[in-house]
């Protein structure tokens, strides 16, 4: 984030700094989201707990960037013109998908502290499984908004599908046992 501000400050953000801020905060959100989803598989493969310990922090980074991304859209891009925001929501499914992803992440971030984990008990895991929907929604948001070149969004999508497939095979494997 500091790097981002510095890039804007020095003019390295290019000719369209607002678009630059929107794009980079969006991409970092996706990266941290996918990274948080990768924690469990990596822990299982390495048979080590450290990825799980990092998971909360990674998830909160994702939420932090998602918030920055949303604010960049609302404040910098739309200049807090709510009519334009509503028109965008009404017209463009990718905007809806983006909002949805943020709305799903919000309660997850709020319940990420130890106290909430304790209080919610078993339900905590159910609530936090929603992260998959947040990730799918975020990926839809990215794939839909791509113009001609869909390679980068598709790479992210592939990573997500790979992670989902890994979970699914584990799930099926354990239930058939």
């Amino acid at each position: 984030m500091a790097l981002l501000v510095q890039q804007v400050q020095t003019g390295n953000a290019g000719a369209n700094p607002i678009e630059f801020v929107e794009q980079s905060t969006g991409e970092w959100t996706l990266r941290f989201l996918l990274l948080s989803l990768a924690a469990t598989p990596v822990a299982q493969i390495l048979k080590s707990a450290w990825p799980i310990r990092l998971r909360r922090m990674v998830g909160l980074y994702a939420f932090f960037y998602a918030t920055a991304h949303l604010l960049a859209y609302l404040v910098l891009d739309q200049y807090l013109n709510w009519r334009d925001v509503l028109a965008d929501l009404a017209e463009k499914p990718f905007i809806v998908a983006g909002f949805l992803s943020f709305l799903i992440m919000l309660p997850l971030a709020v319940t990420s502290n130890r106290l909430a984990v304790k209080r919610l008990g078993k339900r905590w895991k159910d609530i936090h499984n929603w992260v998959y929907f947040a990730a799918v929604s975020a990926l839809l948001h990215y794939v839909w908004l791509a113009k001609g070149d869909r390679i980068e969004p598709l790479i992210y999508l592939l990573v997500l599908l790979f992670l989902l497939a890994y979970r699914l095979t584990r799930l099926l494997g354990s239930s058939s046992r």
Binding site: V5, Q9, A15, N16, P17, L76, D77, D84
Partner: peptide, 28 residues
């Protein structure tokens, strides 16, 4: 006539400042 990804009602004019934090605050 709106485009599926970009509302065509407004545009961002790339004319003035592109450097510094103030460059981030300009309405379409």
């Amino acid at each position: 006539v709106s485009h599926p990804r970009w509302s065509q009602a407004k545009e961002r004019r790339l004319a003035g400042k592109t450097k510094g934090v103030s460059s981030l605050f300009a309405p379409k």
